[in-house]
């Protein structure tokens, strides 16, 4: 569905053309992701309708209300287009609600809630509790040389994780950062801090491309 990734030549990153990363902007913290990606040198754009997907190298699905986004993904026509692109290897980074949208199984969702089934994890919506239980904490993440400060907002809890999924970080024995192929997910909000290292890891994955 999408062209070969432009930032790549034989798996090495070409510096000349900035990566073009869409941010799903149906609802939620999309503006903060656009800011972070822009700061890292990518060309970030908001995605609300299918034409907005053309020419993108990758996509971020932000935090927000997954039930709201699920409805708007269907009504906008984005769901079917994205489903096809993801099965063709299109790189996506999902945070919080974005993680829910990418999971294979969603617990405590609405019956009509749709997800892309792009990463073999089971998540429980609001699994850490209500807003008064939301929290921040330092995390060790594989591939980062110092802890990442993570902000969890009514976060989804990963209750099951297939062996095919690479676990990049855990918190209290639950997976909070994971990767499967070109899909990277985080249960928290890297866009809410100044730390761009997880976004940079995603951009690196986009640049290297699906093998």
């Amino acid at each position: 569905m999408h062209d070969p990734l432009p930032g790549t030549v034989d798996g090495t990153v070409r510096q000349s053309a900035p990566l073009r990363i869409g941010v799903l902007a149906l609802q939620g913290a999309f503006a903060a992701h656009v800011d972070t990606l822009t700061r890292l040198g990518a060309t970030a754009s908001e995605v609300r309708t299918p034409p907005d997907l053309s020419g993108l190298d990758g996509l971020v699905m932000p935090g927000g209300e997954s039930t709201t986004m699920s409805k708007l993904l269907s009504s906008s026509g984005l769901f079917d287009d994205l489903k096809g692109m993801i099965s063709d290897g299109f790189p996506v980074f999902g945070t919080c609600a974005g993680m829910i949208l990418l999971a294979t199984e969603v617990l405590d969702g609405r019956p009509d809630q749709r997800s892309f089934g792009a990463i073999d994890i089971t998540v429980r919506r609001n699994g850490y509790g209500r807003q008064v239980d939301s929290f921040e904490s330092d995390l060790d993440v594989i591939g980062l040389d110092s802890p990442f400060h993570a902000v969890f907002i009514r976060a989804p809890l990963v209750t099951a994780c297939c062996d095919r999924v690479q676990v990049l970080a855990t918190y209290d024995d639950h997976v909070v950062v994971a990767r499967q192929g070109n899909i990277i997910v985080a249960a928290f909000h890297p866009e809410l801090t100044d730390d761009g290292r997880l976004h940079a890891q995603f951009l690196q994955a986009v640049a290297v491309g699906s093998q």
Binding site: G28, A29, E65, F135, D138, P147, I153, Y171
Partner: peptide, 26 residues
């Protein structure tokens, strides 16, 4: 594989403001 579970801080300004960020566009 990772042991790292740092100290959990609830009710901080970033955590409170964070939910407001999540409601944007809605």
């Amino acid at each position: 594989e990772q042991a790292g579970s740092g100290r959990r801080a609830t009710g901080t300004f970033p955590v409170k403001r964070g939910l407001a960020e999540m409601l944007k566009g809605g």
